[in-house]
C-alpha cells in the first residue's frame, strides 16, 4: 500500500510547473514589482512619512497582486483538468479524487507562495534602499498574507471543483470581498433591532473567512507590537478554514461526474 504523499506530491509539482507557465502570473508579478518600485515615486509627493507610504503601497501591491494570482490561476485549476480530460488518466491510477484535489491545491499554494516570496524580496530591497524600517512585524505580516493566500487558494479550488472558471472567479472574488467585510457586516447586524438580522449577521460572520484577521500590514508599517499568539491563532484559523474548505471540495468533487 502506497502512502498518499507519494501521489499528492507529483500532482502538486506538476501543478507548479503548469502554473508557472501562466502568462497572467508574470503580468501580475510584473505589476506588483513595478508598483513596489513605483511606491518611491508616489511617496515623493508627500513631504512627510514617505517611508510609511512606500511600505503601505508595497504591502498593498503584494496583497492585491498575490491574491490576483491565487484567484485567476486557481479558478481554472480543477475545471481545466476535467475540460482537457487530463484528469482521466490520473484518476485511472490509484489516486483518489481527494488526493488529486489536495495535490492541485498544494501545487497552486506553492506557486503563489513562491510569488509572494519574490514580491517580498522586492519589498525588502526597496525598503532597505530608502532606509525604511524592517522588523519582525513585517515577517508576521507576510506570514499572514501567506495564510490568507492559502484560504483564497482553497476557496478557488472549491469553486473550481464544480463550476466554470468564470463563475469560480465571480464566487471567489465575492468571498474575498465578503471575507474582508465580515467584521463590518457583523457589527452592522448587531446594531439592528431585528433578532433575525442579528442572527443572520452572526451566522455570516462565522461562516465567511475572516480575512481581516490576516491583515497585519498597517500594524507592521506603524510598528505596532504584534503578539506571536495573534499570528499563531490567525494561522491556525486559516489552516483550519482551508482544511474545512478542502473537505467540502472533496465531498462535492467525489460526487461529480467527470465528463
Amino acid at each position: 500500500m502506497l502512502n498518499s504523499g507519494s501521489r499528492i506530491w507529483p500532482i502538486a509539482t506538476n501543478t507548479v510547473r503548469e502554473a508557472v507557465r501562466h502568462r497572467l502570473l508574470y503580468t501580475l508579478l510584473f505589476f506588483a514589482v513595478t508598483m513596489i518600485g513605483f511606491s518611491v515615486l508616489i511617496a515623493s509627493l508627500s513631504y512627510v512619512e514617505g517611508e510609511r507610504i512606500i511600505q503601505d503601497v508595497g504591502l498593498a501591491s503584494i496583497r492585491l497582486f498575490s491574491v490576483g494570482i491565487a484567484i485567476f490561476v486557481g479558478i481554472g485549476l480543477i475545471h481545466g483538468e476535467v475540460e482537457r480530460r487530463t484528469i482521466y488518466t490520473i484518476l485511472a491510477k490509484p489516486v483518489t479524487r481527494s488526493e488529486f484535489l489536495l495535490g492541485k491545491f498544494l501545487g497552486l499554494l506553492l506557486t503563489v507562495w513562491l510569488q509572494l516570496c519574490l514580491m517580498a524580496i522586492a519589498f525588502v530591497a526597496v525598503s532597505v534602499l530608502v532606509g525604511a524600517g524592517l522588523d519582525l512585524g513585517y515577517v508576521a505580516a507576510m506570514l499572514l498574507v501567506g495564510v490568507e493566500l492559502m484560504v483564497i487558494v482553497a476557496v478557488a479550488t472549491l469553486f473550481s471543483s464544480f463550476t466554470t472558471p468564470m463563475l469560480a472567479a465571480f464566487f471567489t472574488l465575492g468571498i474575498y470581498a465578503l471575507g474582508h467585510l465580515s467584521r463590518d457586516l457583523y457589527s452592522l447586524g448587531q446594531a439592528s433591532d431585528v433578532p433575525a438580522v442579528k442572527q443572520a449577521a452572526t451566522l455570516l460572520y462565522r461562516a465567511l473567512p475572516d480575512l481581516e484577521s490576516f491583515n497585519l500590514s498597517t500594524q507592521a508599517v506603524h510598528g505596532v507590537a504584534i503578539s506571536g499568539a495573534e499570528v499563531g491563532w490567525a494561522s491556525l484559523y486559516g489552516v483550519a478554514y482551508s482544511i474545512a474548505l478542502l473537505i467540502l471540495a472533496s465531498f462535492i468533487f467525489h460526487r461529480r461526474d467527470l465528463e
Partner: peptide
Amino acid sequence: TGFREHIGFLPENPYFYSF
C-alpha cells in the same frame, strides 16, 4: 481506488500535460 494499481486505461483521444 486501490485496485487501480492493477489496471491501465487509455482514454479516447487522450490528452496530457502538454508542457
